[in-house]
């Protein structure tokens, strides 16, 4: 059986130890009286304390080991928690950064729109604010696609401006979008006048990709660098007095009596997101 050793097969049920019954009873009585007495006296407490010293030191060692294990495991848990929290915070930070960037974008967009609304309100009451959808539309330099079209009342020939001056002209109209050719395009011609003090000189202006040019300007006309050029408004679509740019350089031509003028455009559509289509 599970409790019996092999030796115990020959043993009797009761213990073989011969104990004197009287001694046993005396011992029982003594023990019981020791047990029953108040043990909170100084001597017994001292004995107990000195006896507990052994187990206490052993238990201290065990507790130290347990605490050490606990500390090590809590260090790793803490580190793990820190790492996961750090990862979480980084993620949150990235999200917030994206949000801030988005907000900054919205803010600048709002500022630009306000600007355009001011232009609209101040100068062109019957005009449309439009957003540039695509630069260099269909691979053509100086052609934009904007988000207003025939349904918004846009038609070919309308002039597009920004806060600094003329930007270009509508050359094609779709239902909900239009194509704009900028003044830098060499396919766009404008008639403008150079205002130099009290003198005014009319000329034909054309883009050359980077700047605007007046190909032949009579040398007898006295103008200065920095003189401003405005639209003459000589047809239905182009209003009078829109700023085109200012004289940047005089270049000699093959004809001795004429300069070629390089004009720096006032507007820079590449820095804008919204433009105003003038009706």
């Amino acid at each position: 059986m599970f409790l019996s050793s092999k030796k115990s097969k020959n043993k009797t049920l009761f213990s073989k130890n011969e104990i004197n019954l009287n001694l046993l009873i005396i011992l029982l009585i003594i023990n019981f009286s020791i047990f029953s007495t108040n043990q909170d006296n100084r001597y017994l407490n001292q004995i107990k304390k000195s006896l507990q010293f052994g187990p206490q030191s052993i238990s201290l060692i065990f507790e130290f080991g347990a605490n050490l294990l606990n500390d090590v495991s809590s260090y790793f848990i803490f580190k793990q928690n820190l790492l996961s929290e750090n990862e979480k915070l980084q993620k949150e930070n990235a999200e917030l950064k994206a949000h801030v960037m988005q907000m900054a974008d919205i803010e600048s967009e709002n500022r630009e729109l306000n600007n355009k609304l001011n232009i609209q309100k101040k100068y062109f009451k019957d005009s449309l604010i439009t957003q540039i959808l695509n630069l260099n539309y269909q691979g053509q330099n100086h052609h934009f696609l904007v988000d207003k079209g025939e349904e918004d009342g846009v038609y070919i020939g309308q002039i597009v401006v920004d806060k600094s001056g003329i930007v270009g002209q509508v050359i094609a109209v779709n239902n909900n979008s239009s194509v704009i050719r900028t003044i830098l395009s060499n396919q766009l011609y404008l008639t403008g006048y150079i205002k130099s003090g009290k003198n005014i000189y009319q000329s034909l202006i054309q883009g050359d990709g980077k700047n605007l040019t007046v190909n032949y300007f009579n040398k007898t006309n006295k103008i200065n660098l920095g003189d401003e050029i405005f639209t003459t408004g000589d047809n239905l679509n182009i209003p009078k007095g829109l700023r085109i740019g200012k004289v940047k350089k005089f270049l000699n031509t093959e004809l001795n009596d004429f300069y070629k003028l390089i004009i720096e455009p006032s507007s820079n559509p590449y820095k804008e997101r919204f433009l105003v289509i003038v009706k």
């Binding site: 009761f14 104990i19 046993l24 029982l28 023990n31 019981f32 020791i34 004995i47 107990k48």
Partner: peptide, 27 residues
């Protein structure tokens, strides 16, 4: 008893009771 802060005599009372029980049964 001292190690584990029992009243002195607790363990021995149990032990002596078992011995007493065994002795009585034997008799």
């Amino acid at each position: 008893d001292g190690f584990f802060n029992f009243n002195f005599g607790t363990c021995n009372l149990i032990f002596l009771s078992l011995v007493f029980f065994d002795l009585i049964l034997k008799k």
